[in-house]
Design a protein around this nucleic acid. Sequence first.
DNA 1: GTCTCTCATGGAAGCCCTTCCAAGGAAGCG
DNA 2: CGCTTCCTTGGAAGGGCTTCCATGAGAGAC
Lengths: 339, 339
Amino acid sequence: MPTIYDVARKAGVGIGTVSRALNDSPNISPETKEKVLRVAREMGYQPHALARGLAKKRTGAIGAIVPFLTNYFYLELLKGIQHEISRSKYDLILYSADDVTRGEELLERVLRERRVDGLLYISMPLSNRAARKVRSRQLPVVLVDSYHPEVDSIHVENQQGAYQATRYLLELGYRRLGMINGKLRSFPARERRQGFLKALSDFGLSPRPEWMIECDDMDGQDGFNAPAGYRAMLSLLALDDLPEALFVASDVQAYGVLRAAREKGVRIPDDLALVAFDDIQPSELIGLSTVRQPMFEMGQRAVKRLTEKLENGVQDLWHETLGTRLIIRSTCGGDGRKG
Amino acid sequence: MPTIYDVARKAGVGIGTVSRALNDSPNISPETKEKVLRVAREMGYQPHALARGLAKKRTGAIGAIVPFLTNYFYLELLKGIQHEISRSKYDLILYSADDVTRGEELLERVLRERRVDGLLYISMPLSNRAARKVRSRQLPVVLVDSYHPEVDSIHVENQQGAYQATRYLLELGYRRLGMINGKLRSFPARERRQGFLKALSDFGLSPRPEWMIECDDMDGQDGFNAPAGYRAMLSLLALDDLPEALFVASDVQAYGVLRAAREKGVRIPDDLALVAFDDIQPSELIGLSTVRQPMFEMGQRAVKRLTEKLENGVQDLWHETLGTRLIIRSTCGGDGRKG
DNA sequence: GTCTCTCATGGAAGCCCTTCCAAGGAAGCG
DNA sequence: CGCTTCCTTGGAAGGGCTTCCATGAGAGAC
């Protein structure tokens, strides 16, 4: 593989000049620049990414730390990230935390290793300790689908969305409501729970503890996946007294719920109404009523913010909240049925 | 951030010794090693990934070039990749080709840029020209869900799977069969087409050209996505004479087909039987009959092969083919109905 | 014709590591 | 006690780039 020295020799110039030609420096005559670029192209020369990164103190890469990809939510998010990344000059390094509780270890390693210029920390909680470490580095970090007051973040109106969904069930006339949620260490899980509880309380109702199910994390994840939803539904159905409507904290969990319902002969929505959260693609086909969140846009905006920060070096704290929208389909009994 | 010099000074040793301690070199006394590691830990020292890569001529990263993530198939594949990567010492760099036809440009850039030690080239065709370039570098590349005789590859029995699916429809008694496919530049699309045609011919039938639909690539992709399936189905339904059964080359396309069918009042399977290919997660819930391919395993094995090649430096050519299995659900009319 | 100023240019230094080589010290052997 | 041999160790060199500084040539002013 040719190095910058080979190009310099062949073009009859110094290495500095080659570097200037390749980096669009103003301090080079147009003719020299053209000649150098031509020679470089002919030789198939391309700068060594690591060497360049080392010299420039800029790696040209952005990292994303994601949990294990058990939820299609991540795919939609990644699409947005991918879209925006491919418009920028950065590459994307995908780090995966096979176990959510070890996300911060990974974060620290990545922060210190300096393989990336900026970092997306996705769908995992950030402790105060870790937040402090983040702040103490110059490396910009954006929290996605999560929140910490001292670190840039973007997420949706989880509470508001859950509130809408729950309220809709209440307005249909249902009163015996349950909720299947992810682990409460997760930010969206806590927020959605708040929204659910608020709607109940606005209707003068109290939650039934045995109907508030926090999915297990058998797989080291946060319960936001289909198998966890399936197991949660089975445990719910083992109860003597059942709710008549359910708010499920994510679509994939709802898929698990639907499967369990089908196996146990529970009819949806006749025996049990259902609203979920996310609106990933298959939900439309399945007819799942759900709260739509703009996942693609969230990924896109997170990257945009990060790259802007890298270019302009802005230092202000940034928190963005995106709206949600309730999408009514066929799992909650339609308007005519009740209420 | 501390460098190796800082650690060396603080530990009262030379930089070579620090390096040896950190890299598990045998040429260091246990006591020194322990002391150095302790100091390094106290200082929060971690080697600079780029500097290390430059010196070692090993980046510690594996690249994956994927098309735009419009198919859940990729998520399943990524899960397998992620799983295996996280067990290795490599990081994953995700390059996305927003336009399938430009995948090879990206490939060449990545090959030259030397940011990765090895490369997965996913679901995109490889030209002879590109294959030659790949071979001329020492950098190992594995083709995933694709094929070229001169480059390592892994994929499933596309032809065999399609044959099974088609044959099943034929055995049910259907004779008027159509196929909705991805772009034929894609390897799986061509193979699945072959399987379909072979089954027809085994039953003494000829394909009806107007029922052989190659999805459009409006979005710069290969047609393996839901919107393309939707559009293909609409164009099919515009015909006067319709097939009675359809083999669709992927589940996500089938989702688009199902949506169009619902909108146009076409009942599945009564008016039209359907078998697809992939068996991504939601298909079970939807009741889609389909050919299951081991996507997770494919991703896993591709990474495993790549890392082995990186460790052992084996040079032999490797092609692996994984089996498929027909999963009967409710979109092709069940056994009792015909035949 | 002389002096200044400007600007393109070459190349050393530096980015942070690993690796290799030379050297010192300890241990073993006769 | 002297000579080998074997470990450890320090640190220079090198990996391929960018950046900065010094230099020299050309242009412009007088």
